[in-house]
Every structure is written in structure tokens, then in C-alpha cells.
Design a binder for these strands. Sequence first.
DNA 1: GCCAACGTTGGC
DNA 2: GCCAACGTTGGC
Length: 166
Amino acid sequence: MRTWLFKTEPNDFSIRDLRDAPDQMTGWDGVRNYQARNRLRDEIQDGDRVLIYHSRGRNPSIVGEAQVVSGPYPDPTQFKPDHPGFDARSSEDMPRWFQVDLRFVALYQTPLSLADIREVPEFADMELLVHPRLSIQHITDRQYQQIIARCEPELAARSPLIPAFT
DNA sequence: GCCAACGTTGGC
DNA sequence: GCCAACGTTGGC
């Protein structure tokens, strides 16, 4: 299982929206960037862990956790002419944009802000700092451990290797 | 394939 | 809301 970080603008869709959604699940639609698309389509697997990052807020932060609960499939909004995600170059047999389904796992006790991330030397090579525009980012196991140690200290103390919500 | 113009992102 | 950085488009 790998860990990813998905960015979202909380005004548009927040982790609380995911928590409150039917079955606490949502299709992660709207990704319109090729590098992010390739990861959704080719790398991300059912069961992978996803950290939710709120961008553009008062205090941009990693705020919680979700789980991938599907394989990749075509983003249906690309086919809807009235939808902002519509893409006339896509067709049902040649879809251009893909998504996965996420299920809510947890709101972190202590969100980890971008400002804090910048101050930790071990986070210097995080994609969030190196490629800040990429909306689907990979998180290494080591980075995850350090994130969870800050966001969920009790959980991390209980299971120091790869802490997991169960 | 270059690159200027344009659109979008996202921290501040 | 500003604006710098980045990604995409499309004429040539």
C-alpha cells in the first residue's frame, strides 16, 4: 500500500464534506492535469492511503485521511456539456480524465500546516514543497510516519512503525 | 518543436 | 484579491 496526498480547495470540497457524504464516500472528480491523471490512472491502487490537503484556505494544511476504494475509471463530468469539467475532446470510448473513489478515514487531531511543513528539514523533499502545483502527490512511508507523529501523536506512539487507522 | 499568449493555481 | 509560477494551447 502506498500513500498519496490529494489537494482540494475546502470551499469547493472539504474533508468534512467527505465525512458527511453518503457512505462517507466520493468520486474524486475534476482532475484536469496530465501528470495527476497519469497517477490516478496508472499508479494509484484500490486500498492506498490518501492524505487530504486543504489548499487556498486561511491556513493550508494536511487535515485528515481517506482510503482509495476503487480502481481508476473515467471521470463522468468530462462527458457532461453543462458541467465545468466538460472536455469536448473526450469520448466514452476515448476518455481523457480519470478518477478514483475515496472513503473517509479520519480527521486528524492536529492538522499539519504548510508553514509547519516548511520548517521541518525532513520534509524538504516533499512534493508539496518541490512541485507545489501538482494535485496528486506521492508521500513516502517515512514522510507518512513523520506526518502522523505530528497529527496523531497517540496513534503514532501506540504503533510506531506504520501507524494505521483500522 | 518553438515559444508567445493565455488560463489556472494557490500562498500570501 | 493580487500576482508569480506554472501548465496548456496553438500558430508558425
